[in-house]
Design a protein around this nucleic acid. Structure first.
Lengths: 94, 94
DNA sequence: AATATTTGGTTTACATTATAAACTATTTTA
DNA sequence: TAAAATAGTTTATAATGTAAACCAAATATT
């Protein structure tokens, strides 16, 4: 009856991150933090999970002398997001 | 940026239950169990949570001599579901 | 020049949650 | 009458989410 909802995406913060990353080329840690209103710790953990799943890539570099973490959604991540949205529609359609 | 997702509804099984209850007058435990593919234990726990939140009512009676648990969504439950769907749309809109 | 604060994170500990396993009680079937 | 099925509930465990505590470097303050 109902399709499974990818547990990696069925989490408010991770879904928010993925939603943002779907609409931009890439995003900095601080940008994601502001947009999602997450704490840095929580965001850090959830980004790692998305990265380990292969849904995003995380690049660490420096902006001037400050650390800079940049996230980009992968093909796999896009596909997972789309499938999640599709599955979800079953649950929320009127 | 993103609205909060009601944590009571942001759970695969509870969302499935609520989705079903939105479209029927009321539903028996066994019906919900089949449609959601949940184990009886899990379903029992999640129904209690929905009930405690005032999102559904649970009526226990007998069908012949067997116990019969009937669930009905409340006005509050409907409203919560609709708000959840609305909030969710922010996350998944293209 | 030392000290405090801010920035940009990560690690870890805790509390909550979800889930299945174990259990209860009755009923039906063999 | 013993076994298995029905209709659930309770409880123990594993997984999860989250914030608090932490770290290192840079910048601002006294």
């Amino acid at each position: 009856m109902f399709k499974e909802l990818d547990p990696l995406l069925h989490s408010q913060l991770r879904l928010g991150v993925m939603s943002l990353l779907m609409s931009v080329e890439s995003a900095e840690f601080t940008f994601l933090k502001e947009k999602t209103n997450a704490t840095a710790g929580n965001l850090s953990v959830q980004l790692d999970k998305l990265s380990e799943a292969g849904y995003i890539t995380i690049e660490k570099s420096f902006k001037g002398k400050k650390p800079l973490t940049t996230c980009t959604i992968t093909k796999k991540g896009m596909k997972a997001f789309e499938e999640y949205v599709n599955a979800l529609k079953q649950y929320i359609k009127p």
